[in-house]
Amino acid sequence: MAVADLMVLVFSVILYDIKEAYFPDSYLNYTPICSFVITLIYISLDCSVWLTVTFTFDRFIVICCQSLRSKYCTMKTALKVITMVFMLSILQNIPIYFIFEPREVINDVPWSCYVKSSFYTSPIWVAYLWFGTLLTPFMPFALILLLNTLTIKHIILANRVRSKLRASNREACHTDQETENRRKSIILLVAISSNFIFLWMVNLVCFICVQFTDTQFLETDYNDSFTIAEKSGYMLRCLSTCTNTFIYAVSQRHFREELKNVISRPFLSIANIFKRWNTKGTLSKKANK
């Protein structure tokens, strides 16, 4: 997930948005290279989204399907799933490269990328656009909501049973760490679902507008409300690739411990150096005496 999210930031933010704003005349704006970068953006986005789905499914198996946990939640299975997600994302987005044409030709050199008009009228391209949008983000919306709802339902039922058992054992007055951990899991799952849906919603609305109005993708009229909404949707979509990994990571106790170690290690090293100097100074003073 972290690698896929980093790919989105590199391809979408650095090689496309920053290039468009600050280096419009660079070689990255040649039409073949521009088309290739946009294709990489969509590949990395699909990888990021579907790895979030697979991680959500993994959590569902761990919490709700104890019988499958030992078989599914293994390093071997994880490698297979990750490889499959990356390969399918690449295959599904290869046609993206062929939907662009030069925005202008200067001295026989094609510049920038413009979506072909046939992309909105050709039945094959229209079907491909619908297929791609159903695959990302419609299906991830549904799967993440379904899996997290089932997981939360399972946790709530387990908490009720546990509360009744503790009440019968007269332990209800004590703090239940297991129930507290489950409550945190519910908050985490709700945060993941709402974050993903909210940050992709603008992009989804833009897609629907393109299908039922005369608007087009990648317009450059920044006085147009659709262009502003489209660019805002792309910004929020990039943000979504960061926040899910951040939420998952920060919620893990081991990750927080490692993060504390990374932050504190330079200060501990400096403290140890000063401590050694002080020790050497004390020993040399004693030796002189």
Rank of each mutant, 00 (worst) to 15 (best):
Phe23Asn: 02
Phe86Trp: 09
Val81His: 00
Ile63Val: 15
Phe23Thr: 10
Phe98Glu: 11
Leu9His: 09
Thr133Asp: 10
Leu143His: 00
Ser70Asp: 12
Arg59Ala: 09
Val109Asn: 01
Leu40Pro: 04
Pro137Val: 01
Glu104Val: 14
Ala21Lys: 10
Val37Asn: 02
Ser112Arg: 14
Ile61Asn: 02
Ser44Met: 00
Trp111Met: 15
Thr133Lys: 12
Leu91His: 01
Val81Leu: 10
Ala142Glu: 07
Asp58Ala: 08
Phe100Gln: 02
Leu6Gly: 10
Met84Tyr: 06
Val62Leu: 10
Asn107Tyr: 00
Gln66Met: 07
Leu129Gln: 15
Tyr42Gln: 13
Thr52Ser: 14
Leu6Ala: 15
Ala127Ser: 15
Ser118His: 06
Met75Val: 08
Gln66Lys: 14
Ser112Thr: 11
Leu68Ile: 04
Ile63Ala: 11
Met84Ile: 09
Leu28Asp: 01
Val115His: 02
Leu28Phe: 07
Ile41Lys: 01
Phe131Leu: 15
Phe11Asn: 14
Leu134His: 08
Phe11Val: 01
Ile96Asn: 08
Phe57Asp: 01
Cys64Glu: 07
Gly132Glu: 07
Val37Tyr: 01
Pro102Thr: 04
Leu40Ser: 05
Leu135Gln: 13
Val13Pro: 03
Trp125Val: 00
Asp5Gly: 15
Tyr30Val: 00
Tyr120Ala: 06
Asp5Trp: 04
Gly132Arg: 09
Met84His: 09
Ser26Asn: 06
Leu129Thr: 03
Met87Val: 11
Arg103Cys: 05
Thr136Asn: 15
Ser70Ala: 12
Lys80Val: 13
Phe131Glu: 14
Ile99Val: 14
Arg59Pro: 00
Thr133Cys: 08
Ile96Lys: 05
Val62Asn: 02
Ile14Gly: 00
Val49Met: 09
Thr39Ala: 04
Ala21Ser: 08
Asp5Thr: 14
Ala142Trp: 00
Leu143Met: 12
Phe119Pro: 04
Val115Arg: 02
Thr56Gly: 05
Phe100Thr: 08
Ser122Ile: 01
